[in-house]
């Protein structure tokens, strides 16, 4: 490690520690933390409420296994469905936007506005999008799908354009010299060349959306979170 990197890393760490101390202020608050956790676990988490795995009284369960009519099952399946649909829609919408945003595929006057759009979609967390869409569409899964799709486009689009910008220049140059159009270069060169990263980001986004499906449900946008709230 050279001296400049070492000094920069040391100063950054020192600044982080000072800021941490500043934010915590009263270290005495840590006293009794463990016992509070034990009380919380004892009073709220244990024993688990197994009734969420039992069939709901209404509507009448027509499944052989009662679990399939339980709040937990219905909520989880709904969350996974919302995450799946939103990730698929988000991916399809984000990919052309990412191609516009990538500096190695598009001129500055195209990439800059595309980046602004992606950044704007990413700047609001999915829970805020969920509140907005609950206002528009009322409580339910539609609001959840819209909220998560919007966030997915912003988030996935950024990861995608960075992957596209990371590909080597040689295939792009060869295709430009051959006279390929921008659409051909994007579809036949840039996307296949960055496919490994694009797929990895897609999987990550699906996992992220399943986790966030719980949170957006808390504001009425469907999924397991909706049941947690009620």
């Amino acid at each position: 490690m050279n001296t400049r990197v070492f000094v920069t890393a040391s100063i950054s760490l020192l600044l982080a520690l000072i800021t941490f101390n500043d934010l915590v202020g009263d270290w005495g608050r840590l006293e009794g933390g463990w016992s509070n956790l034990v009380i919380f676990f004892d009073e709220s988490l244990w024993p688990p409420n197994w009734s969420v795995l039992e069939a709901q009284s209404y509507p009448v369960c027509e499944e052989r296994v009662g679990l399939f009519c339980s709040v937990a099952w219905i909520g989880m399946v709904e969350t996974i469905k919302i995450a799946f649909v939103s990730t698929a829609f988000g991916f399809i919408i984000a990919l052309p936007l990412a191609a516009f945003a990538a500096n190695n595929l598009s001129p500055k006057w195209v990439s800059f506005p595309a980046r602004v759009i992606l950044s704007a979609m990413r700047s609001l967390p999915s829970i805020i999008w969920a509140i907005l869409f609950v206002i528009i569409f009322d409580i339910g899964t539609l609001a959840g799908i819209f909220a998560m799709t919007f966030y997915t486009v912003g988030y996935l689009g950024k990861l995608q354009f960075e992957s596209i910008e990371g590909i080597t220049n040689a295939p792009l140059e060869a295709s430009r010299a051959m006279g390929m159009t921008r659409a051909e270069i994007t579809y036949l060169v840039a996307i296949p060349e960055s496919a490994n990263n694009l797929l990895s980001h897609l999987m990550f986004m699906f996992e992220y959306n399943v986790r966030h499906g719980t949170v957006i449900g808390l504001v009425g946008a469907g999924g397991i979170g909706l049941y947690l709230n009620t």
Partner: peptide
């Protein structure tokens, strides 16, 4: 369009795609 062929030093192939798909790119042009 297609009148000029360029083989860069690093070849400019799409590593993830099959040999046929890479050659097809030429045929498209």
């Amino acid at each position: 369009r297609g009148g000029l062929g360029y083989i860069p030093q690093r070849l400019g192939l799409i590593g993830n795609m099959s040999v046929r798909s890479n050659v097809e790119m030429g045929a498209r042009m």
